[in-house]
Design a protein around this nucleic acid. Sequence first.
DNA 1: ATTGAAACCCACTTTAA
DNA 2: TTAAAGTGGGTTTCAAT
Lengths: 167, 167
Amino acid sequence: MAQHQIDRLDKKILQLISQDARIPFLEVARECNVSGAAIHQRIQKLRNTGIIKGSEFVVDTYKVGFQTCAYIGITLSDIKMFNAVVEELKKVPEVVECHYATGKYSMFVKIYAKDNRHLLQIILEHLTLIPGIAHTETFQISLDEIFRRQLSVFEIESTIDVIDEEE
Amino acid sequence: MAQHQIDRLDKKILQLISQDARIPFLEVARECNVSGAAIHQRIQKLRNTGIIKGSEFVVDTYKVGFQTCAYIGITLSDIKMFNAVVEELKKVPEVVECHYATGKYSMFVKIYAKDNRHLLQIILEHLTLIPGIAHTETFQISLDEIFRRQLSVFEIESTIDVIDEEE
DNA sequence: ATTGAAACCCACTTTAA
DNA sequence: TTAAAGTGGGTTTCAAT
C-alpha cells in the first residue's frame, strides 16, 4: 500500500484519454504544454499503479442486436458458495458485470439479452440452475441507455492509496 | 435505417480492439492476415455506422477514492417529467449511468460515491430533491467490482439494423 | 472492398540536465 | 522529474485492382 499523489497534470491527462483512448499522446502533450516524454511517463506510472486499468473501444450493444438489458439481484443460499457462483457466472457470456452487494442481495449482475425471451431464457436456463443461487430478482432496462459516462476526474481526490504494482 | 452486414473480419477486429483500444492497427492487420489499410477502412466504417461508439481508457474508480457504488431504482411522480429528470441527473457528476426501465421502477441509475456517508448525501441532497422523482430505492454495491467485461463479439448477430450516420 | 507504397506523424528510448 | 533528439514503426491516403 503506497500513497500516490495525483496532480493537476494527471487529472488533465486522465480527462483527455478517458474520453478518447486513441488520442495521440503528443496531442495530449500539446494541450498540457509539456513534452511528449512527460505524458508518456505519466501514463506509464498511472498504468503501473493500476489507476489506469486498460483501454477499450466501446461497442453499441443496442446496434449489434442486444436491445434488452437487465440488472439482476441475486440471493445466495450459502455465502460460502460465493466464489463458485462467480465462476459459473463468468461462463455465461451475456453477464457483463458482477458485483458483491450488501443489503437485500448478495450479488448484483448486469446482463445483455437480445429480447425479453432471450433474457428469460438466460435467467431460467442458466442463472437459476447455478448451485448456490437461491433467488433472483430482475430489474429490466429497455431500449438504449439514456446516458453513460466515466466518473469525472474533477471528483477525484488528490491523495490516493494504491497498492503499488510496479515491477 | 439500413441493413448492415457484420462479417468474420469485423468480429475479429472488434474482439481485438474492444479489449485494448491502443493496439496498433497494423498488429490487428497481421493477426487478421489483411493489409493495414483494410483494417483502417473497416474501423472507419464501424465508426460511421455507430457500431463503435468511441474508445476510452478505463480508470479504476476504487483506486481513485470511490469505494462505494450503488444502483438506484427511481419511481417518478409523473412520467412526463422523464426528460427533465434526466437533465437534472446529468448535473450530478457521480451519476455515471442512466437507464429507462420497465416494471417496478421508471429509471435505473448507477452512482459512484466515496463512502456511505457520501452516497447518502448524494441521494438526500441531490436525487430526492429533483422535481419529478417520487421515490428511490438503493441497491448498494460495496468493494471493487468482481468482474466487468464487454459483450463478447461471438454473441453478436451477423445482420444488423443500423441507422446510417455516414455523412 | 482490398492492396502496396509513399508521406507524414507518432511512440518510445536514450541522453542529459 | 523533466526536456530534447533520434529511430523505428504506425497511421493515413491514394491509385490501382
